[in-house]
Design a protein around this nucleic acid. Sequence first.
DNA 1: TATAAGTTTTAGACGGGTCTAAACGCGGAC
DNA 2: GTCCGCGTTTAGACCCGTCTAAAACTTATA
Lengths: 236, 236
Amino acid sequence: MLSDVMEDYLKAIYALQQESDDPVATSAIAEYLDVTPPTVTSMVEKLEERELVEREKYKGVELTDEGETVALEVLRHHRLLEAYLTEHLDYSWSEVHEEADTLEHHISEEFERRVAELLDDPEVDPHGDPIPSADLAPIEDDDTTPLSDRDEGEAVVVARVSDRDEAELQYLSDAGITPGTELVVRDVAPFGMVTVGVGGEASGDDEQKGRGEAEQSLPEDVARSIRVRSAVEEVA
Amino acid sequence: MLSDVMEDYLKAIYALQQESDDPVATSAIAEYLDVTPPTVTSMVEKLEERELVEREKYKGVELTDEGETVALEVLRHHRLLEAYLTEHLDYSWSEVHEEADTLEHHISEEFERRVAELLDDPEVDPHGDPIPSADLAPIEDDDTTPLSDRDEGEAVVVARVSDRDEAELQYLSDAGITPGTELVVRDVAPFGMVTVGVGGEASGDDEQKGRGEAEQSLPEDVARSIRVRSAVEEVA
DNA sequence: TATAAGTTTTAGACGGGTCTAAACGCGGAC
DNA sequence: GTCCGCGTTTAGACCCGTCTAAAACTTATA
């Protein structure tokens, strides 16, 4: 059996691996999980013994296939819970993450199955993040890119918003930027700030009608946490 | 903060205190939680330091008011979860306990609040056990007694069934004995076995109709785990 | 009332998860 | 090509929750 802390490490390594493809550095994990580097070293040694990660001293770690499967299992729990809490327990878009972060380690397979069934096997969670399938097959790359990589004039649709920062999420939600929202990139400042026009079609049924189009400036790190796809592709 | 293990100890001490009123013995806790007595000793020492229990060496422990409040909080979580899982996630009467036993330590106060609201502040869980109120006031004694204490000829209504043993629960469920079921005590054997006639009105909407009255013999320990109230009092 | 039987506690060990302090190694700068 | 700095690992400590083995206590009994 794996402790919930071990699951957190695997989830963290998985997330960091998505961002860069290089082996994940000790310090990156330490920062992500808010522990000290020596703590990470000792933990990854244990994970290595269990063959959940491969490690090269002073270089970094990577998940083994088995480690990735565990990470996907936890991620599936997390995202199913986010969807469930939002749809059935009236949690708001932004407050769901913390609850799911704890519960993901403690629900049974039976619970997972029943929630998935009740939600009709959703493919994405409320933030737009893909939910790993029940067979835990690796998630395929999607066609999204960070908003910060887009150029002026492009019309895009919000696909995913990082769920790591509740305040940021609340801010974006208030600004009407949620998965499904259409954006037009108005300006990209040299220091990375992106100004967008917020278009119609916010996803969902909030009272965001009649607000008309608005401009919104987003600091670079916020823009990087928003993943979008080109508006034209939406037809598919 | 309290670990989930500490919460389990407090819950165990609470449950054992209900059964006897005497200070709870180390060995009783050890058996209840399936650990060794030395483990219990070291744990209750820690609980004593935190003023959650009062302890007299070689005698036993009792919950302080604070300890009882914690136990009631955990019990509230447990029983709300049992009710919730049964009503909203289609869990059967007998499989609910294990899931609730884990989740009770990990749901937030917010989750508790929302579940209670959704269920319209239920007073009992699916086993008939009273759910502590949100203010965690001590549970008042109810008017139930173990079926094993009843005499031949008495007509009673099932109020509560212990949720500690899933197989037993399944058995009783199959026999049509659930909270709300009317029973008549037919015979009490010298060795404690109780034979009852299972009457109409099973609680709920299962397909238990048309089965007619049946006789059912219950070993003494099973009969002791079923709490009943006199049928006449039901009018109130 | 002395002793045996049974329960409880003490002593000491271990793995998990974390820390701080100090030693180590890698890669860039000179 | 050597050295310095920063990131990483080693060393050693601590608390939690658990165990086994052995000592201490309580109680029932002879």
